[in-house]
Design a protein around this nucleic acid. Sequence first.
DNA 1: CGTCACGTTGACTCTGTTCAATGCTAGTGG
DNA 2: CCACTAGCATTGAACAGAGTCAACGTGACG
Lengths: 250, 250
Amino acid sequence: MPPFETRPIQVQYLKAACSSCSVLELCLPLGLSHQEVERLDTLILQRVRVKKGHTLYRAGDPLSSLYAVRLGFFKTSVLSVDGREQVTGFQMAGEILGLDAISSNLHACSAFALEDGEVCPIPFAQLEQLSQALPSLQHNLNKILSREIVRDHSMLLQMGNMNADERLAAFLLNLSQRLSLRGYSSRAFVLRMRREEIGSYLGLRLETICRCIAHLRDQGLVIIDGKQVQILDLEGLKQRVAGCHNAARE
Amino acid sequence: MPPFETRPIQVQYLKAACSSCSVLELCLPLGLSHQEVERLDTLILQRVRVKKGHTLYRAGDPLSSLYAVRLGFFKTSVLSVDGREQVTGFQMAGEILGLDAISSNLHACSAFALEDGEVCPIPFAQLEQLSQALPSLQHNLNKILSREIVRDHSMLLQMGNMNADERLAAFLLNLSQRLSLRGYSSRAFVLRMRREEIGSYLGLRLETICRCIAHLRDQGLVIIDGKQVQILDLEGLKQRVAGCHNAARE
DNA sequence: CGTCACGTTGACTCTGTTCAATGCTAGTGG
DNA sequence: CCACTAGCATTGAACAGAGTCAACGTGACG
């Protein structure tokens, strides 16, 4: 186990308000009226800084809050009985952490910061209470939960039907698309996770990730130097994924 | 494509009421007071019969209702761009179909009946409306959505970290456990799906499923004759899954 | 009785894993 | 300042597990 897994999180309190947040339209308040956002603000009392390598919560912890990522990059993962890690997702600004805890009031996975970041804790009991009064807030929460289900199903499709190169291409495209939604370049970005974590997420070994990076590089689709990614041929990458398995094989 | 994919569903109206349903405590009304269930009953106007081989809804259909399975056995699946099927789940009595449609108001997967069954359509707009008035109903919906996320994550763990034998063992144990929750035998049951569908669900080919069945049989853990399953050694099967990959390998 | 869909098994192939060696970078301590 | 270490990334070679292709069996059903 990496050493950082034993460090507790360091909490620093900062003022928070959805109404002045830059990822407002990607997050829980999406589509709410100004007045509704102000009521939601009454729940979001603070931002919490999480330093790189620290844990926001662990599998088994009781659910107190969901966490909206405001800044930074997180991974969530579950452990198999024999201690193997399965990364279940990478989250960036505007995405919500902790959804899987609602079912049992215990977190089913752990959340780690892959770089320094900030999250807005959303006390869940109060969120449910407030969403009694705000239909559109309740609807948003339902949508966010459902979106996570859709995302998981597409991961299952990747794991079940795509080969290693295709999975990596799909992974890079997914990052590219989410980053561009947040105003960053879709063609140049930095991987915040290690090869091993990408591999775990995609159901592959880290060596396979290295080799797939080499394949995509040799085909002139991307340049990946360490954690620095440059996408040379976005369309080519997309074709690689669409022509899923067997089709258009070299 | 199998021929039944083109048949429309045949709708037959039957009286329905959660308050008199046998899977009440596994379904949406879980934990609701008698009065609350009666209000929920006002939404559940009918049961719909779905005959084996028929489609309840298809990917792309607009979301009008969620469906509670009352009887029978369903599969849900998504298609990849090039027409490959990925089975995302098998649903039995008390489980809810259509959750992935909430995110976009369009069904993201299709639902097929693997045997004659009955579902209770739950008009989603009205469900959201009613859950404004009934906090515990809203809470249940949240829980059900979250439970699906947890389930998907455990499927990702299976696909990412388990070999073929382990996945099949986990699959059989999961069926066994859900059936026993519903009052059926946990040691003898019938597979409602074909080998190919099991394979798609587990990210394997149908031939691999056959071979894994043979492996488990040769180890004296199960007897599987066609669709008839008999579990001889429940504990042995569990060990097979827990000692996930590499551990306790023969 | 013949057809068709499904299931089983074998032989061979191939993709991804495993194991190992090597390189690179950042951090640490003498 | 440099030697040393630790963690991460890359690459090669050998191996193994699952895929592919093909043949055959079986049971349901018109």
